[in-house]
Deep mutational scan, measured.
Amino acid sequence: NKFNKEMRNAYWEILHLPNLNEEQKNAFIQSLYDDPSQSANLLAEAKKLNDAQA
């Protein structure tokens, strides 16, 4: 299933973003579980936030 793979990839990438705190990571990961079809968008948002907090 495409979403499972996308979701897993997004999950791991978000988990390893160095500039997000636990609360931010948890919020993105919760959103992933709530709507796996948004994995790519959530990952993009997480990366933007990560870069902004660098």
Rank of each mutant, 00 (worst) to 15 (best):
Q53G: 09
D34K: 14
K47I: 06
F28Q: 01
L32K: 00
Y11K: 09
W12R: 11
E13D: 06
P36Q: 06
Q38Y: 08
N19Q: 08
E45S: 14
Q24F: 07
Q24S: 09
N50G: 03
L20M: 05
I14S: 00
N21I: 10
Q53T: 09
Q30L: 14
N41A: 11
H16P: 01
L42N: 05
Q24V: 05
Y11I: 14
Y33H: 03
K25F: 13
A10Q: 01
Q53P: 07
A44Y: 11
K5G: 03
I29M: 04
N50L: 01
W12Q: 03
N9M: 15
Q53R: 04
L42T: 01
D35T: 09
N4L: 06
K48R: 11
A10K: 02
Y33K: 03
N19P: 00
Q38P: 02
S37E: 07
P36K: 04
D51T: 15
N4A: 02
K2N: 12
E6Y: 05
A27W: 14
K5D: 09
A40V: 10
P36M: 04
K2M: 09
E22M: 14
S39G: 04
H16A: 09
S31A: 05
L17F: 06
A46E: 00
N50V: 03
P36E: 02
N19T: 03
A46K: 00
A40N: 10
A10N: 02
Q38S: 07
E45K: 15
W12D: 02
K25T: 10
Q53A: 06
N21L: 07
E45R: 15
Y11W: 10
L15T: 05
E6P: 01
A27V: 11
E23K: 11
W12P: 00
N21K: 07
I14L: 07
A54Y: 14
N4E: 13
K2P: 07
H16Q: 06
S39A: 11
K48N: 09
A46L: 01
Q30E: 06
A27P: 04
S39H: 13
L43Q: 08
S37K: 10
W12K: 05
A52M: 11
N41V: 05
A40I: 12
K47A: 03
A52S: 10
Y33R: 05
D35H: 13
A46W: 01
D35P: 01
L17A: 04
E45W: 15
F3G: 14
Q30G: 06
E13Y: 15
A46Y: 04
N21Y: 10
K2G: 14
F3P: 15
I14A: 01
L15W: 11
S37R: 08
L49G: 05
W12T: 04
A40F: 15
N9H: 15
P18D: 10
L49A: 08
P18L: 10
Y11P: 00
Q24R: 07
S37T: 08
L49S: 06
A27N: 08
L43E: 03
K48I: 09
N26G: 08
A10L: 02
K25D: 00
E45P: 01
L20V: 09
I14N: 00
A10S: 03
S31T: 09
A27H: 10
D35R: 15
R8A: 12
Q24H: 07
D51R: 13
A27Y: 13
E22I: 07
R8N: 08
K47E: 04
P18W: 15
F28D: 00
A40S: 09
N41R: 12
I29L: 06
P18K: 11
A46S: 07
Q38E: 11
A40T: 09
K25V: 09
K5T: 01
S31G: 06
A52K: 09
N9W: 15
K48Y: 12
L42M: 06
L43F: 05
E22W: 11
Q38T: 11
A54E: 06
Y11E: 04
L32Q: 02
D34S: 13
D34W: 09
E45N: 10
Q24D: 05
A10W: 02
Q24P: 01
Q24M: 11
L17V: 01
N41F: 14
S37A: 09
K48W: 09
A52D: 07
P36A: 07
K25S: 05
H16K: 13
L15Q: 06
E22Y: 13
L15N: 05
M7T: 06
N19H: 11
N26H: 12
K48V: 10
Q24W: 08
K5P: 05
D51L: 13
S31F: 11
Q30I: 08
A46P: 00
N9E: 11
L42E: 03
N50Y: 02
A10I: 03
P18E: 06
D34V: 09
A52H: 10
N50E: 04
I29W: 12
H16M: 07
A44W: 12
S39I: 11
D35A: 12
S39P: 14
I29T: 03
N26V: 12
D35M: 10
M7Q: 14
A52E: 06
S39F: 15
E6N: 04
L49T: 09
E13H: 15
P18T: 10
Q38D: 07
N21F: 14
K2R: 10
K2H: 11
F3S: 12
A27M: 13
M7N: 01
N21W: 11
E13K: 15
I29V: 06
Q53D: 05
N9I: 14
L43R: 13
F3T: 13
K5F: 01
L20D: 00
L49R: 08
L17Y: 04
D51K: 12
P18M: 11
K48D: 10
I14K: 00
D35I: 13
H16R: 14
L43T: 06
A40Q: 09
A52V: 07
I14M: 09
K5H: 02
W12N: 03
S31N: 07
Q24N: 04
E6Q: 06
E23L: 12
L42A: 05
D34G: 12
A44F: 15
K47F: 06
L42H: 06
L32A: 01
I29E: 01
L49Q: 14
K25I: 06
D51I: 12
N19E: 05
S31W: 11
N50A: 08
H16E: 02
N1A: 02
N26P: 02
N41W: 15
D35K: 14
N19W: 12
E13A: 15
Q38I: 10
P36R: 04
F3I: 13
Q24I: 03
Q24E: 06
A10M: 03
Y11D: 01
K25E: 02
A54G: 06
D35Q: 10
K25L: 10
L43G: 02
A10G: 01
K5W: 05
L43I: 04
K25Q: 07
S39M: 13
N9S: 07
K2I: 08
D34Y: 06
K5L: 01
D51W: 14
N50D: 07
K47L: 06
N26A: 15
K47W: 13
Q53S: 08
K25H: 06
A44G: 09
Y11S: 03
D34I: 13
D51F: 14
N21H: 10
F28W: 08
L49M: 09
L43A: 09
K25G: 02
E45I: 14
N50K: 03
D34T: 14
S31V: 05
R8E: 14
L17I: 02
N19V: 06
N50Q: 05
M7I: 06
